[in-house]
């Protein structure tokens, strides 16, 4: 199993944002993580990527525990993510954002840069080429030299995915990637996620757009008040009475 959450909990003061969660993601799988607002989905991502440490339980990647590891170490081990409220490196260009994402897969230091050694020039060329490929893959080639902050919203979402892919992950965590996208953009996002999976990368995706979840995910887990209340194929989960009750209990979320 690629990623395993074993009885993971996170408490903020008295509130259990995540409560005894068990979840597994296999290589090349697309798993959906859904649930009403405040259910604890983003907290799960923060726990996996090391921004928060669990109050209980353990998270394993390729059977090694991620407990106590810093976020950048976890990324180096193969976990990448995007953020619900986009966090790009705003004044860097689209290309530079992706180049920065390749940091943990490259080696040359400042002295090699100073003397422009062969190793430096070679690595720099490869980093640039790979960044160009990733930009093209998410359809942002024309925006190469535009500052990230100046990009249209939909492009920022895609750039964030490309930057995450630049870390060469085994699994990518996408936090509401379709939020704020129009139908055409959402369609091409699905296409992109399928292509990501084809390269052998597993995807764990938080999403409120049920059409997207239904058509994309192999498996869906449903969180409510930090607890997993259902898990299974999209169709089974959609018809689960407890899931329907969880969503109906809170009007603001539209379960289509």
């Amino acid at each position: 199993m690629l990623l395993q959450l074993k009885g993971v909990s996170k408490r903020f003061g008295g509130v259990a944002a995540v409560d005894n969660l068990n979840l597994e993601v296999a290589r090349g799988e697309i798993v959906g993580l859904i649930g009403p607002n405040g259910a604890g989905k983003t907290t799960v991502f923060n726990l996996i990527s090391g921004l928060l440490s669990p109050s209980g339980g353990d998270i394993l990647l390729n059977n090694t525990s991620l407990a106590g590891k810093k976020p950048h170490r976890i990324t180096a081990l193969g976990v990448a993510r995007t953020f619900q409220n986009i966090r790009l490196f705003n004044h860097l260009t689209a290309l530079e954002n992706i180049m920065a994402g390749q940091y943990c897969r490259t080696r040359t230091g400042a002295w090699q840069a100073f003397f422009r050694t062969g190793a430096f020039r070679k690595e720099e060329r490869e980093v640039r080429e790979r960044a160009g490929e990733l930009l093209a893959m998410v359809g942002l080639a024309p925006y190469r030299d535009i500052a990230a902050a100046a990009l249209p919203y939909g492009c920022q979402r895609r750039l964030e995915i490309a930057r995450a892919l630049a870390t060469r992950p085994g699994i990518i965590l996408l936090d509401e990637p379709a939020a704020g996208l129009n139908e055409a953009e959402s369609e091409s996002l699905q296409e992109m996620i399928r292509r990501i999976r084809e390269t052998g990368i597993a995807v764990l995706i938080i999403e409120h757009d049920m059409n997207l979840v239904m058509s994309l995910c192999d498996r869906v887990a449903v969180l409510n008040f930090g607890q997993k209340i259902a898990e299974g194929t999209p169709n089974r989960v959609r018809d689960d009475p407890e899931v329907i009750r969880a969503y109906l209990g809170r009007e603001e979320t539209g379960l289509a």
Partner: peptide, 25 residues
């Protein structure tokens, strides 16, 4: 030269968003 290298990009990334830079490795 450092600025146009891996190290310099990392510095710019840390300046722009320390949390995001950590998650970017």
């Amino acid at each position: 030269r450092q600025e146009n290298s891996r190290t310099g990009r990392a510095m710019a990334a840390v300046k722009a968003d320390e949390v995001a830079s950590g998650v970017m490795g």
